[in-house]
Design a protein around this nucleic acid. Structure first.
Lengths: 217, 217, 217, 217
DNA sequence: TATGAATGAGTATTCATTCAT
DNA sequence: CATGAATGAATACTCATTCAT
């Protein structure tokens, strides 16, 4: 409840002091803004520090390194996304409803937090770091992917969805949703509600089992 | 014919010597490999030169600058892609066939040239450069997007496709196709033929007009 | 008072810390030495840093760029020169006295600060940078030129000076003074006091109005 | 006579073929233009070669190095200058006439060959090269300096000139003349004839012995 | 804790010069 | 003789990181 309002509650290390957490939260927020606005490549620690009004060394003090900061940013955004989308999906009566709710909520999240979604897209698409490892914890993406896959299997089990490849379908849906933030950046007056409905309908048709033939007989 | 198989024939400037063209082609090839394997941000001129076994200055000698090199890489990949995909789409009798052919051919191109498609994805998704301009000629992307959109409108005109938003549908298809290269990199044994068919079926269902109700009688 | 003797007080930005100012002053001093000894073209940031015993990046840290450093060097030298020469010119009773004082003080300044004057000559004569703009603030040169021109016009108004072209005369005087630093570099035992008097006499004769003819008869 | 028309006759090495000499002359001419127009620092071998319509390697082939080329350029310009000025000075009846003729001819040379004089000024003022040696043969400057000094001593011997320091006076005159090319570049409509007369008068007054006092008595 | 000065490796690019063709 | 491809060192500048204060 009240923890909902704290910035980085879920991932906070209990050993960290209040002031330490505040600084980390501030830095993460500023990093999100800079990455969203200027792109990942231009988001140097200096830029982020300048935005936060602090010295660049402070970031190195509070985070193990730039990679660590980026991972925290990704974790923050994914966590917030799950908190936004989850409640709107849970409790749906049937798989098709859940799928539509998931897609619409995902697009709504882009509208609600454009900087968050822009930032995470920029991070993901910047690819792997110098060490060859991804810049974010792959496990963070899992909940969303697994969420879509669960809904898809649910619908297949009930016969409402046809027999598609669940992994490919889930991936395609995610990509469709993730394409929205950069479009919104280019075209800020984009009708997000319509976009969400369009995608929901698109994937509803793509997943639905054929209606039982009225048959001939 | 045989010239069709040469690497950079179509875009070759006739004023350039054979040896110059060979070097340029080699550098472009190495740049593609490095960008595909290590990502755009890590693809410094030094890295590309090292891969080619040449001095970094050679690249500056043959290209006006890094931007120029990247543009040439993008042009090369897009041109090759168009040459690969175009013939398999043209001549299809109806819009749904053309759409399926386009999607399958696009996925096949990923299988045929995984480094090319990985590289171009990395370039596109690296976003805009320091000057704010895209790193490649935006006109290069247009044919593919326009191609999809033309097919989609064609099908809507004939009544085979339902009344969806063409821009959103085209964008979603392109994103679905563009998601393939990074997946292939992670999972090299991916069954690309099956992937192509799966996507084709997905978007066939998503685009098709409802069959005329057998109605009452 | 005592602050008069500090190196860069007048142009110091109050926001800069003591240590920052010290570093900047040290770098400016080293830049002056290197430019004076090795010439402008050879005065790379690396050379200057080596002379200062610091890493080259430190200069980029303290100055916005090489241009900025050069401008600061020029400002420093011109400011110091004005402080040296100005008091010896002001308060002279008549134009010929002021002109002599100005010339002698200018040459004395060369003797007092040979590196300063060599450096500024090298900067001025290195001409314009790649962008076509002068490497220093043109306004810095103006006081000296205007000072000479004012004295010359003053003397013409009082009839003590003949009717020469003020611009050409001022320019010639300045060139004569500016020729001294390189000569001193080549010939370190040059008698500067004599040089100053010689130039002063030269331009006194060149500027003086003809004495009223005793006429009569 | 005919040798007047050849470009680099006086300094030509007899072992060089005609075609070799022609190439050298062409390169020297282009180097003069580039140095005059773009400044010494911007005058790379590539720029000079481009102006000449040849490959940069050709210059390295015909000259021992860039320093050698610059020395040849300086020699060419000084030689041409001597040929222009010398005849107008020789044969003057008295030292004051010779001095005036020398100054006027020097300024006329600037007007006649602005590129030559701009180039040589840029070379001289670019200072010393990487090796610490001057970029031109100091002996080349000697004739002009010696010429002025001879005239000055001549006038002192005849009593027409006062007892000034010959070296300083010669140096000052030379600097006054050398200040003209950059001014002309900035202000192309400069009245060169007037400028020459102004300087001639200036130094006439500066050098003249006081007229014998009509005495009292 | 925070600062900001400093480092050293890294970036793209330019340039004089060499050399096989 | 001329070319143009290649080199390797040098250029200014950026950046993540460290550390004394």
């Amino acid at each position: 409840m009240s923890s909902e309002n704290q910035t980085i509650d879920k991932i906070a290390d209990p050993k960290r002091s209040f002031i330490e957490e505040a600084r980390r939260a501030q830095i993460i927020d500023c990093a999100i803004d800079v990455i969203a606005e200027q792109g990942f490549a231009q988001a140097s620690l200096s830029q982020i520090a300048k935005r936060a009004g602090i010295s660049a060394g402070v970031i190195s003090y509070h985070f193990a390194g730039k990679d660590d900061l980026i991972r925290e940013v990704a974790a923050h955004v994914f966590t917030k996304g799950a908190a936004f989308i989850g409640p709107r999906v849970n409790g749906q009566p049937a798989a098709p409803d859940a799928l539509r709710a998931f897609i619409v909520a995902s697009v709504d999240y882009v509208a609600a937090r454009p900087a968050y979604t822009r930032a995470i897209m920029n991070i993901i698409r910047a690819g792997r770091g110098e060490t060859g490892q991804p810049r974010y914890d792959a496990a963070l993406e899992a909940p969303r992917r697994d969420g879509f896959q669960q809904i898809l299997r649910w619908g297949q089990d009930t016969g409402e969805f046809r027999a598609f490849d669940v992994a490919i379908m889930a991936r395609t849906i995610i990509e469709a949703v993730d394409a929205v933030p950069p479009q919104l950046a280019v075209q800020p007056d984009l009708d997000m509600a319509a976009y969400g409905q369009e995608l929901a309908t698109l994937f509803d048709l793509a997943t639905r089992a054929a209606p039982p033939q009225p048959s001939a007989e």
